[in-house]
């Protein structure tokens, strides 16, 4: 009953077949799921995609078991500080990264299996008042943290044994960094958004802050998800978690904005809007597909380049969706409920 009015209000309508149910798992003792994700895991010469579920005090790793079943392999118990987020680490294997904290992130930990000791373990990578964190290709993690006096932006090179091999300080902007996004095809470039609604660009090799570009006063506070460099322009996918209905089509869930890094000028490219009514929550982006949970409890998926909704996953009789995350490598969409149910869909 939620999908129908959404479908009717969208210009070209979501294609029902674009999300195909694959499998479901349920964490039986979890009553407050906080995040879900998927990681590549290699064991006994076989590399497979495993699901990770996070509750406040525990993170579980799930292995696929035919047909369409999942078995819990291990649970890491983290009882001192609540888990608040799983941090995706692209292109890594046998490694889960989690952020822990109360209102904001206080710790970042790696969860892994150690073949030396034949046991699962976790290790601390970073502490502080952490405002934003992102995992990048080549086993790198960037975070921004703030003390009363200053902001620190740091890149950590992770090791396969769960430690840090090296650290690189990046030049901080004056405003607090609220989100980071990797730049597709440019491993040395990093994009971020600030509390002052600017997009900033770093050179990760030198740590230089290359450019600060204002997003525009007409946009609500923006969060960067992903960026692509093409033909001398930087295309940044932004979402507006506290967005209001500011456009004729409704509330914008995602926007693609083109920036000219040479001049700092910008121009809107596409807007992926919800029809009037349901507000969006913070979403997730994979390649050119965006997904977000709506306040109605449905999950909506957009083609960000065309600016159109391609699929809607309505809340079922079992309850509302609370989490939507893309699995790595185009493996599909993970939708989770607070009761610990996770469903995997092929997209």
């Amino acid at each position: 009953d939620v999908a129908e009015p959404l479908t009717a209000a969208l210009p070209d309508g979501p294609r029902e077949e674009s999300l195909q149910f694959v499998s479901e798992l349920k964490e039986p003792w979890c009553s407050g799921a906080v995040d879900v994700g998927a990681v590549w895991w290699a064991a006994a010469g076989c590399r497979e995609l495993r699901v990770v579920t996070a509750c406040e005090s525990a993170v579980s790793l799930w292995q696929p078991r035919a047909p369409a079943c999942w078995a819990r392999v291990h649970t890491w118990h983290l009882r001192e500080i609540p888990v608040i987020q799983i941090v995706p680490l692209p292109d890594t294997c046998n490694l889960v990264c989690v952020a822990l904290g109360e209102l904001e992130i206080g710790e970042i930990r790696l969860l892994l299996y150690s073949s030396d000791t034949d046991s699962f373990k976790h290790s601390l990578v970073k502490t502080g008042n952490i405002k934003a964190v992102v995992g990048l290709k080549d086993w790198r993690l960037v975070s921004s943290s703030r003390t009363m006096q200053e902001q620190q932006v740091e890149m950590v090179f992770l090791s396969e044994t769960g430690g840090s091999k090296d650290r690189q300080t990046l030049m901080p902007p004056e405003e607090t960094v609220t989100a980071f996004a990797e730049v597709e095809g440019m491993s040395e470039a990093l994009v971020g958004t600030t509390a002052g609604n600017s997009v900033v660009v770093w050179n990760l090799r030198t740590g230089q802050l290359l450019r600060k570009m204002h997003v525009g006063y007409s946009y609500p506070v923006s969060i960067s998800h992903r960026a692509y460099s093409d033909s001398g322009l930087l295309f940044v996918v932004l979402s507006h978690p506290h967005g209001k209905e500011s456009e004729p089509c409704g509330s914008p869930a995602f926007r693609v904005v083109a920036f000219n890094p040479r001049t700092g000028r910008s121009a809107p490219v596409t807007s992926s809007c919800l029809p009037p009514g349901p507000a969006g929550r913070r979403g997730d982006v994979w390649d050119t597909a965006g997904a977000a949970v709506l306040t109605s409890g449905a999950v909506a998926v957009w083609d960000l380049l065309r600016g159109c909704c391609t699929a809607v996953l309505p809340p079922g009789p079992a309850g509302q969706w609370a989490l939507a995350r893309w699995a790595p490598g185009g493996a599909g969409l993970l939708a989770g409920r607070r009761d610990g149910t996770v469903q995997l869909y092929r997209y």
Binding site: E188, Q208, S231, G232, N260
Partner: peptide, 23 residues
């Protein structure tokens, strides 16, 4: 969007800004 909206475009913006920005 056109070049007139965004100003002159450079394909080597990353290298150019890295040369110009403070170290």
């Amino acid at each position: 969007c056109s070049e007139s909206d965004l100003g002159p475009i450079s394909l080597n913006w990353f290298e150019e800004l890295s040369t110009e920005a403070p170290p």
